[in-house]
């Protein structure tokens, strides 16, 4: 068994194509990759919304004033 389809390199490289693991699963891997990417956006936007909701409560007036002064 070899995940890349070759157990040794006793081959003529002119006859060799893909050598990555799990050939034939490219579409499934793409689906997993896209889920990861879209999931990232969903998590990120939810967290950002919660964070902004919390942060919009103005804190200590003097501290906010100092922040404004700092530019």
């Amino acid at each position: 068994m070899s995940t890349i389809g070759y157990k040794d390199w006793n081959v003529d490289l002119a006859d060799v194509g893909a050598i990555y693991p799990f050939q034939g699963w490219e579409v499934a891997m793409t689906i997993v990759g896209v889920i990861f990417w879209l999931g990232w956006h969903i998590f990120q936007v939810k967290r950002e919304s919660a964070h902004l909701e919390k942060a919009k409560q103005l804190g200590d007036h003097d501290k906010v004033h100092q922040t404004l002064e700092r530019y």
């Binding site: 068994m1 070899s2 995940t3 890349i4 070759y6 157990k7 040794d8 390199w9 006793n10 693991p21």
Partner: peptide
């Protein structure tokens, strides 16, 4: 795990 069984070397007699 991902490369299980793949050759580690182009030389004969090496472990996979």
């Amino acid at each position: 795990f991902l490369l299980w069984g793949a050759p580690s070397s182009p030389f004969e007699g090496y472990a996979t």
